[in-house]
Design a protein around this nucleic acid. Structure first.
Lengths: 215, 215
DNA sequence: CTACGGCTACGTGTTGTTCCTTAAGCGTCC
DNA sequence: GGACGCTTAAGGAACAACACGTAGCCGTAG
C-alpha cells in the first residue's frame, strides 16, 4: 500500500487521475484518530509515523486489523460511520480529506470511483491474507509472517525500526506479548534476525524467515 | 448478503440500476468452481445450495474465508486473476456473468461501479469481523458466533439446515472438527440449541448463544 | 550533575488451561 | 457393506496466565 508519494504536499492521491488537497494534522503517540461508530467525515493518509486500525469485542479484547505506514490510506468508508477505530502508534502526521470532497469527485469522475474500488479491493485481499494467518498458523509462523510482511513495506528491507510495541504486534497476530517476545528471541537464537534493541530488527537470514512462515 | 432476489431468473443484480443476464450452471458437491490464480473470467451468484471460498497455506492447510448462500455474489475480482478458490459445499446452481460484460457496464454507467464498490466494501467489513473472531475468541465463542451469523442469513432464523460439514465449519473458524463437535454437544447439553440430526440445528435459546459469543 | 524513585516496556521461568492429536466406535448414505 | 461423517474419550503439546527481574526514560530532589 505504500507508494511513491511526495509526502511533502498535503494531498491524497487515489489513483492516476485523482488527487485531493487536505489538511495536515499531528497526532501524539496513542492518540485516537477516530472511533468505531463515529461519523466518517474524513479519509486519511499517513505522512509520517504509523497508525493502527482495530476492533474490540464486547468485553474489551482488541484485534488490530492493520498497521498503516507513510503513504498508506486508511479510514475509507462507504457507509456513514466508521466500522473500526484508529489510533497513532507513534507520533505521526496525517493528511485528512473531507468525505464530501471525495464523494463529489467520485460523482463527477467515474475514474475516481474506480480508483476507490481498486483501493477497497486491495484492502480486502490484505484482510483475507490476514485471516489465513490468524486461522491456520502457529505462533512462530505468525510472527515470521509479520516480519516478512513488514519488511516488504519498509524502504530498507534489511533493517526494520518497529514503530509498534510487542503488545500491538500481539493484538495484530492474535497472540500474547509473552509469546511474541519468545518468538523474537528464538529467531535471534537461530540467527534469522538480530535484535540490537527491542524495536530494531536486522534481517540476518530472510529466507529462513520466509521458510518459517509456511505461507 | 442474502437478498430478495427472484432466483428463478438467470440474472445477477448488483444494485438498483444494474442487472446482467448470465448462464446458469450446476456444480456437484465438492466440485471446484474456480481456483486461486486462475483467470477471473466470470463473476457468480448462488441460486441454490451453498459455496465456500478459501485459501491454502503452502503445506496444504485450508482456511475457509466465507460461505455463500442463495442470493450471494462471489468471485468478484478487480485484478485479472482469482485471489481465492471456490467450491460447491453441496449440490448447487450458480449464475455466471462474464467479467467483460460487467466491465463494459461499469465503464458505461458510473452507478454500476458504485454498486461494485458497495459490494466490495461490504465484503471487507465481513472479512474484518471474521478476523476479530479468529484472532481474539475462544473455541466456544467462535462456534456460537458462527451459529448466530448463519441464523441471521437464513430465511427461518429458528431452524438451520447446515449445508456444510463439521470439517468446513472447523476450517472456517480456525479449529478442528473435534473441537467444533464438542462445542455443538455442549450447546445442546445447555439447551441453547437442539440437534435432531447433526446438520439440523434448532435455536432453542438464541440469547444464550448471543451471550456466549461475547462479540 | 548525579541520585533516586516511579513508570513503562520487554524478557524469561513456571504453572495452568485450552485445544489439538490420536484413536475408537457408531450411525448413515451411497 | 464399505466409505464417510460425526461423536466421544484419553493423552499431549502449544500457548496463555502469572510472576518476577531488568533496562530505559522521565521528573525531581539532593
Amino acid at each position: 500500500m505504500q507508494a511513491a508519494f511526495d509526502t511533502s504536499t498535503d494531498m491524497i492521491t487515489f489513483g492516476p487521475q485523482l488527487s485531493l488537497r487536505g489538511v495536515r494534522m499531528h497526532f501524539g503517540r496513542n492518540a485516537e484518530i477516530f472511533g468505531e461508530g463515529e461519523d466518517a467525515e474524513y479519509i486519511y493518509r499517513v505522512v509520517s509515523g504509523a497508525v493502527r486500525t482495530m476492533r474490540f469485542t464486547a468485553d474489551g479484547r482488541r484485534q488490530i486489523l492493520g498497521f498503516h505506514l507513510p503513504g498508506d490510506i486508511f479510514g475509507l468508508e462507504i457507509g456513514d460511520a466508521h466500522t473500526l477505530s484508529a489510533e497513532a502508534v507513534a507520533n505521526c502526521d496525517v493528511v485528512m480529506v473531507r468525505r464530501s470532497c471525495l464523494d463529489k469527485a467520485a460523482s463527477e469522475d467515474p475514474a475516481a470511483t474506480r480508483a476507490l474500488l481498486a483501493l477497497t479491493s486491495e484492502q480486502l485481499s490484505t484482510a483475507r491474507a490476514h485471516a489465513l494467518v490468524l486461522g491456520r498458523k502457529g505462533a512462530g509462523e505468525r510472527v515470521a509472517a509479520f516480519l516478512v510482511e513488514l519488511a516488504g513495506r519498509f524502504v530498507s528491507k534489511q533493517e526494520l525500526d518497529l514503530p509498534m510495541s510487542r503488545a500491538d504486534i500481539a493484538d495484530y497476530l492474535g497472540l500474547t506479548i509473552e509469546t511474541v517476545s519468545r518468538a523474537f528471541s528464538e529467531f535471534e537464537r537461530e540467527h534469522a534476525i538480530a535484535l540490537p534493541s527491542s524495536r530494531h530488527v536486522v534481517m540476518r537470514n530472510p529466507s529462513a524467515l520466509m521458510h518459517y512462515q509456511a505461507a
